[in-house]
């Protein structure tokens, strides 16, 4: 609001920085919220943002452009992107089946989709490793075919697909449920074929939600640690993820270096989310038009 307008307000008008409300407790609730957020999140986060610069800009640059760090970031974010892509398809398929093709036991399957949320990552990690190890139930036949999953980047992608799967299903599912079948039936009466309906009627409606889900799955996967380290093999330059590098640097008491890698991960994550968000904004605008 411009100063001129404030001056023009009638004498005695109360202007407050928030909208008046008769409900009590705003100062207390806001106070608790901000205090907790500062103590638990913002102050620690500021340490992450400030500490790398103890090395000086050149030092930070040297850390993040170290071949081993670059490789780890590439593996974490590359694998996360690939896993998110796979999850876009898998998640869409599962959400579609759950909403549009009811079958006996659907509720049980629906509940199981959340297992990767609920199962501690370390448990998922050792279980996936046991399955895909060269002597595991799936690892053995696959290795006979010449495909090595455990202790390779493929294993990392697999673990990241596991942790990211519920995000896509759970963001797409409610939108599909809300999507009225009238629209599809209308398209049908207008002579559209099912693939045309899926692509031109259904996809545009769920695309923003799909992107949100993919973004969440990507962000989660890029920072994932527990489910990955068991199956990754952790070979520097080949199958070493960025979070593990942070752990290694901490073990060497290289706080600034660890913080630099952490900061780089944060920046990359948010850049990725920002791109997805703007893409989603474009799609959402088109959906409304």
């Amino acid at each position: 609001m411009s100063p001129a307008l404030i001056l023009a307000a009638p004498a005695g008008a109360r202007r407050s920085w928030r909208k008046d409300s008769v409900l009590p407790g705003f100062p207390l609730a806001l106070g608790v919220t901000l205090t907790w957020l500062c103590l638990i999140f913002l102050i620690p986060l500021s340490a992450l943002i400030l500490r790398p610069w103890e090395l000086g800009p050149a030092g930070v640059w040297a850390v993040v452009t170290d071949p081993r760090v670059l490789a780890a970031l590439r593996i974490s974010f590359g694998a996360a992107a690939l896993a998110a892509l796979v999850n876009a398809g898998l998640g869409l398929l599962i959400a579609w089946v759950l909403v549009r093709h009811p079958f006996p036991g659907r509720r049980l399957v629906d509940a199981l989709v959340d297992l990767p949320f609920a199962l501690p990552t370390a448990v998922a990690g050792i279980a996936l490793t046991a399955i895909y190890a060269p002597n595991g139930p799936l690892g053995r036949p696959l290795s006979e075919l010449g495909v090595q999953v455990a202790y390779t980047p493929l294993g990392i992608i697999l673990a990241l697909i596991f942790v990211g799967l519920p995000f896509v299903v759970r963001t797409v599912q409610p939108v599909l449920e809300d999507l009225s079948q009238d629209v599809e039936e209308a398209a049908l009466t207008l002579g559209a074929k099912p693939p045309q309906i899926a692509w031109r009627v259904v996809m545009p409606a769920i695309a923003p939600a799909l992107l949100t889900g993919v973004g969440l799955a990507f962000a989660r996967a890029a920072g994932e640690y527990g489910s990955v380290i068991f199956i990754a093999g952790n070979m520097p330059l080949r199958s070493e993820i960025a979070p593990l590098l942070i752990v290694i640097k901490l073990e060497q008491f290289d706080y600034a270096g660890a913080a630099a890698v952490g900061l780089a991960m944060l920046v990359l994550s948010f850049t990725g989310l920002l791109i997805l968000n703007s893409l989603q904004a474009v799609l959402a605008r088109r959906g409304r038009a």
């Binding site: 992450l48 989660r220 890029a222 994932e224 979070p243 942070i246 991960m265």
Partner: peptide, 12 residues
């Protein structure tokens, strides 16, 4: 905090 690596949440 959802979009931050758990390792970073410990690191801080």
């Amino acid at each position: 905090p959802f979009s931050i690596s758990p390792v970073v949440s410990g690191l801080v």
